[in-house]
Design a binder for these strands. Structure first.
Lengths: 213, 213
DNA sequence: GTCTATACCTCGATAGAC
DNA sequence: GTCTATCGAGGTATAGAC
């Protein structure tokens, strides 16, 4: 299959950490804001440029093309999320893994742009030719892998029932996460994602957790 | 607030049910297919026209503009879903309401375009200026209202515990629905939405249902 | 009811001056 | 490193002939 021009992710050359890249960082921030409300397809690099304080070509000096800008945005999001969840230690296992999702949601609730970014981009990236398509597949794959291991681990330590249907729990949990974000973006601040998620996790423990002594 | 031109839903004039509207129906079908894979923003009416077997202006003879076409699509989807769920009788109540969601998902699994349509449009419609924004808000409102009543009813008949947190259950259920669809569209046929949903509903009953005698 | 032609806009990307 | 200018593509919508 061939891709339409400009619809493939361009890896930016790995930048030597030279200082003075303030414009670049500012552009990424502007892109996050715009992508999160208008999506990738609908926002123009010209708009991003204006918000950055540059002309369109000025912006394109820092990124070879539009999709490289998206790349940079996704890279940053992934990095910050991973750091928050795992820090420099090991990934949480057992029910603790699920609790850490609550913490992540709580933090992201204070950054609406990041929620919007994910909701918009992951829907667009449904299309195989979208520049974020692969990113999205990897994103889902990592979460599923982590949560799958977390459950397996919990079963070994005995806090999760041996017959808990791991795959369904993983997929449903991700679905709740994504779905709540969708509702939250549709009607900003109409509810507490954390509160709803806690009810879901309570049900999970009640159903598949071993009885508390 | 003012809307960008062409970004408001144009109600089509209510059509006298004259026959010979085959072109119109065909156009709606083509639009469903394209919107479901490319979204509303990114699909051009020219593409829809080609798939319909018309020129671009030929298509625009049947719909005053692009957003009227979207209107027609959404109207049809809403109609078919409602008919399937409620028929011409009363809305299901109690746990049966949740079971009927499984049936809906089972049916929609055989119509991938409808899943894709919903995933793409509802993410785009996040933007207040999007022509489907109001539709989406109403859509969520109706489901919440129905499921909320279903729980209340189940509490009265005694099949649902009195202290079940109605709002959270409703929002989480909708989230699971939407989130599973997102995953299903991202990786087509990678799982059975029905199977995952059943696990979720099992947990719901186990947690908030009154013990079976 | 359907077509061709066209007006008018926005966008991504490039060329080249400073 | 940033700008202006510009090209070429693609989009919505309208005018007007048949």
């Amino acid at each position: 299959m061939s891709y339409p021009p400009g619809y493939r992710i361009e890896r930016e050359r790995s930048r030597v950490g030279k200082a003075g890249d303030a414009a670049r960082a500012k552009a990424i921030q502007a892109a996050i804001e715009l992508f999160s409300t208008s999506g990738y397809n609908k926002t123009s690099i010209a708009e991003v440029a204006i918000r950055t304080g540059l002309s369109q070509s000025g912006l394109l000096h820092h990124f070879p093309n539009k999709s490289a800008l998206l790349s940079a945005v996704l890279e940053q999001r992934e990095k910050e999320d991973t750091e928050f969840l795992f820090g420099d230690g090991d990934a949480p296992m057992g029910w603790v893994a699920f609790d850490s999702l609550v913490a992540l949601v709580a933090r992201n609730s204070t950054r609406p742009e990041w929620i919007g970014l994910f909701v918009r981009i992951s829907a667009e990236a449904t299309e195989p030719a979208h520049p974020a398509h692969e990113w999205m597949l990897n994103h889902y794959l990592s979460i599923r892998s982590w949560l799958g291991q977390a459950i397996e681990h919990g079963q070994k330590t005995g806090e999760i029932l041996p017959d808990a249907p791991s795959e369904a729990i993983v997929r449903n949990t991700i679905a709740v996460l994504d779905g709540l974000q969708q509702q939250w973006v549709a009607e900003p601040h109409s509810m507490s994602m954390v509160a709803e998620l806690r009810v879901y996790l309570h049900g999970l423990r009640a159903t598949w957790g071993t009885p508390q002594r």
